[in-house]
Simulated assay, not measured.
Amino acid sequence: MKDKKICFVSSSGGHLEQIKQLKEVASQYECFYVVTRTKATEAMKNKKYIVSDLVRTNKFLSVIRMLKMMGEQLRIFLKEKPDVIITTGAAVAIPMCIIGKLFRKKVVYIESFARINTPNKTGKLIYKFADLFIIQWKELDDYYPNAIYGGWIY
C-alpha cells in the first residue's frame, strides 16, 4: 500500500501526540509530517518539515502570517505531492488542508481529544470541506452532524 502518500500536519503538544497515535496508518503508507518547531518536533526521527505557526497578536499580523504559512506549505505540497492530508489541528493545519482541497486531494480531520463539548475554530473551518471528519466525543454530534464518531484516538 506504499503507493499512496500521507501528509500528517499538526501543531505541537496534544495535537502532535494524537497524530503520533496513528502509527498503524503511518506504517502502511509513505508519509511525512508538517509540524511547528519545538524540542519534541526537532527530535522526531520521521521525515518532517518544520514550518511557521500562527501568532495571534492582531488580525493584520495573523493574515500576514497565514499567507507566509500558505507559501511554505505550498512548496512542501508541490515537492511531496501527498494523496491524503490527515490532521488534528490546530491553525498550522489550515493552509495544507486548503492546498490539498485545491489540488483535489483527500482531507481527513480528527477533532482534538481535548474538545469534548465545544468545537475549535480550526475544526469548524475544515468541517466545511473535509472528505472525512472524525470526532472523538459523541457530545460533538450537534456541532458536526455529518462527522463520524471514531472514539478515542488513545
Rank of each mutant, 00 (worst) to 15 (best):
K59A: 12
V34H: 00
S27C: 06
T57P: 01
A26T: 10
V51C: 05
V51Q: 00
V34E: 01
K59V: 14
Y49W: 12
N46C: 14
V34G: 00
Y49F: 15
F32I: 09
C31T: 05
A26H: 11
N46S: 15
I50S: 00
K59F: 15
A40G: 02
K45T: 12
Y49N: 03
C31H: 14
K47R: 14
K59N: 12
K59E: 12
M44E: 02
L54E: 00
V34C: 07
N58H: 09
Y29T: 12
C31Q: 05
T57C: 09
A26G: 11
Y49D: 04
M44Q: 01
N58K: 05
Y33N: 03
N58L: 04
K48Q: 14
E30P: 04
N58A: 09
T38V: 08
E42G: 04
N46V: 15
K47D: 11
Y33D: 04
A40L: 14
I50Y: 01
R56S: 05
R37I: 03
Y29S: 11
E42S: 09
Y49S: 04
V35A: 05
K39Q: 13
S52V: 03
C31M: 07
A26D: 09
T57D: 15
I50Q: 01
K59R: 14
K48V: 06
R56G: 02
R37K: 13
A40F: 10
T38P: 04
M44A: 01
L54K: 08
Q28A: 12
K45Y: 06
S27D: 13
C31S: 13
K48L: 10
L54V: 08
M44P: 00
Q28W: 03
Y29D: 09
F32V: 07
D53T: 11
A43C: 07
